[in-house]
Amino acid sequence: MSAQSLVAGVLAGPADLDAVPMTAPGPLDKHAMAALVARDIPAGSFVNLGIGQPTLVADHLAADSGVVLHTENGMLNMGPAAVGDEIDPDLTNAGKIPVTELPGAAYFHHADSFAMMRGGHLDVCVLGAFQVSARGDLANWHTGAPDAIPAVGGAMDLATGARQVFVMMTLFAKDGTPKLVPSCTYPLTGLACVSRLYTEHAVLDLGPDGAVLRETFGCSARALVERLGRG
C-alpha cells in the first residue's frame, strides 16, 4: 500500500515505507531533536534560531563548526546566554534574554538585519510551529482564537527570507491530532517555505511533492503513517 493512499497526500514516498530506517529505539526528547538539527546544519552556515526550543540547537553545535548565529535584533556571532556579571541590558537575543558576544561579533540596525534574511544571506533558520503542511506551508504565529492577541515578530520575514527553513515541533498536538497536515488550518506564516521537519517521532523532508520520511524514532514508518492518517 502506498503512503498516499494511506493518508490522502500528507505523505508521499518513499515507495517502500519499510526502507525508512528507524534510528533510535524510542521517541526523542527536545535535546536529542536539537542535536539532530545541529548535525544537519552545514559547517560555516549563518543561522538564526527561533525563540523557544530552537535555541537549544546552539548547545549542540560543535565548537569547530564555524556556524555563525544571527539574532534579528541586530547581531552576528551571538554567544551563549549571559550569566552573573556578563548580563548587560544592552545585549539580548530576539527573546529578550541577555546573551554574550563571541569574537568576530558585529552589530547592525534592524533594516540591515532583515535585509540579511530577505536578501538570501542567511543559510538556515530553525523555527517552532503550530502546524506544517506536507508541502512546507508554515503556521507558527497565531492560533486564530478570537481572544488571542496576534504577534508576528520576525517569523514571516525568517520563513520567507532564510534559504532553508527547518522546523522543530512535536508531531502530534496534546489531543493527538497531527500537526503535519495536508493543509494548515491555523493562519499561515509563509507558503511552501519549510524544507525539513524535526519531530520526536521522525525527520521528514517537505516539498512540492509532499512529505518524505527520512528516519523514524521508536516506531516503524508504516505505523507512523497510519497514525498520521487517522488524525
Binding site: 534592524h110 533594516a111 508576528v152 515578530g153 514571516m156 520575514d157 527570507g161
Partner: peptide
C-alpha cells in the same frame, strides 16, 4: 493595533 512583520516594519 496594526500588526506588521518586523522586517517590513523596519523597511
Amino acid at each position: 493595533l496594526e500588526l506588521v512583520p518586523q522586517g517590513t516594519l523596519a523597511e
